[in-house]
């Protein structure tokens, strides 16, 4: 039986208490909610915090409501299942449920939370291995080692952003609310991520992700297209979130195309957006946007499937996503 390292949980009932605990125990502590990302990592000894600050009993993290401006407030502790089943979410932000329903399995989604999914550790199949396995390659720079086995001459880590909700939240222009010892800050979802496999978050270690605010969709439409081997369990090897706001005349007024799982952070394709804005979603426009979006995608050999094919699939999936928004 693969077991957790020694650890012990606390169950704060307020944000302040949680933040205080984290400040008190420092690197020996970790926030945890569903545990579906952290506990496997702990069992593989990728992370070994002793003090677990289980935030699921904090009421503010359990909010799921529409605010006065029509925005959706999602507490970080809302489970994926709850997000999928919520009628207001399904009516106002259908893409959220669509994307969340692709995450892992229905059972895991009863545990996993929206906040947890936004913060999931970057993945790499040189890293997501047991301690013993990693020892056989003398570890990697993300944990206990020196080099990046995906690109041994690289000075940086290439672990992959593997959340399904991240590209969607970025595409929808969501904001995240973080609370730390220095107070509360609200930043765009996009600003939460860094292009680095190790320091993949801009969130400070002590900060707690409390909630998200997703603006009202208004006339906009969005979709998420996920590529993976199986219809359950699997992380994306490619995730495309596309958001389009049409103007009255049938052309695109505003667009965001975000590519997940082909880099260490969600890649926002400005070029794809440029190719779309001002045009109708005709095949040529979609093709141009898809080609543009595929350019910066840089899949490396650290997930399922071959890299050439994954790269090829970016344009295909962007095209499909945009076609779905016609």
């Amino acid at each position: 039986m693969l077991r957790l390292p020694p650890c012990e949980a606390r169950f704060p009932t307020s944000i302040a208490e949680a933040v205080e605990l984290k400040a008190k125990y420092g690197p020996e502590a970790s926030y945890v909610a569903g545990g579906t990302d952290l506990y496997p990592n702990m069992k593989r000894r990728q992370q070994t915090p002793y003090h677990l600050i289980d935030v699921r009993r904090i009421p503010q993290l359990d909010r799921l409501e529409v605010d006065a401006d029509g925005g959706l407030i999602i507490g970080a502790g809302v489970t994926l299942t709850r997000l999928i089943r919520d009628g207001r979410v399904a009516a106002g932000w259908p893409v959220l449920g669509q994307a969340a329903a692709t995450i892992s399995t229905p059972i895991l989604r009863n545990m996993g939370t929206v906040g947890g999914n936004l913060l999931i550790d970057t993945r790499c199949n040189y890293y997501d291995q047991s301690y013993e396995w990693r020892k056989a390659i003398d570890f990697c720079m993300k944990k206990d080692g020196e080099i990046c086995w995906v690109a041994p001459s690289s000075p940086r880590c290439w672990a992959v952003q593997s959340s399904d909700l991240v590209p969607v939240m970025v595409a929808l222009g969501a904001e995240v609310i973080l609370v730390g010892p220095e107070g509360t800050r609200t930043i765009p979802a996009q600003a939460l991520y860094h292009n680095d496999g190790i320091e993949y978050l801009t969130k400070k270690r002590d900060e707690l992700l409390v909630s998200l605010r997703v603006p009202a969709m208004g006339t906009a439409k969005a979709t998420y297209q996920k590529l993976r081997r199986r219809g359950a369990f699997d992380f994306p090897v490619l995730g495309v979130a596309a958001w389009i706001r049409p103007n009255g005349g049938g052309t695109v007024a505003d667009a965001r195309v975000v590519i997940g799982a082909v880099g260490s952070y969600p890649i926002v394709s400005e070029a794809a957006a440029e190719a779309l804005v001002g045009h109708a979603l005709e095949d040529d426009t979609i093709d141009a946007a898809a080609r543009a979006a595929a350019k910066p995608a840089k899949p490396l050999d650290n997930t399922d499937f071959t890299i050439g094919w994954r790269k090829d699939m970016v344009a295909v999936y962007v095209r499909r996503a945009l076609a779905a928004l016609r």
């Binding site: 199949n125 396995w133 056989a136 086995w149 081997r229 199986r230 219809g231 359950a232 369990f233």
Partner: peptide, 21 residues
């Protein structure tokens, strides 16, 4: 080329079909 490590000795990465497949 990496010490003949098993690429994915796990149930996540060794792909056994689910009900969907």
């Amino acid at each position: 080329n990496r010490n003949v490590t098993h690429k994915w000795p796990s149930m996540l990465e060794y792909k056994s079909p689910t009900t969907h497949e």
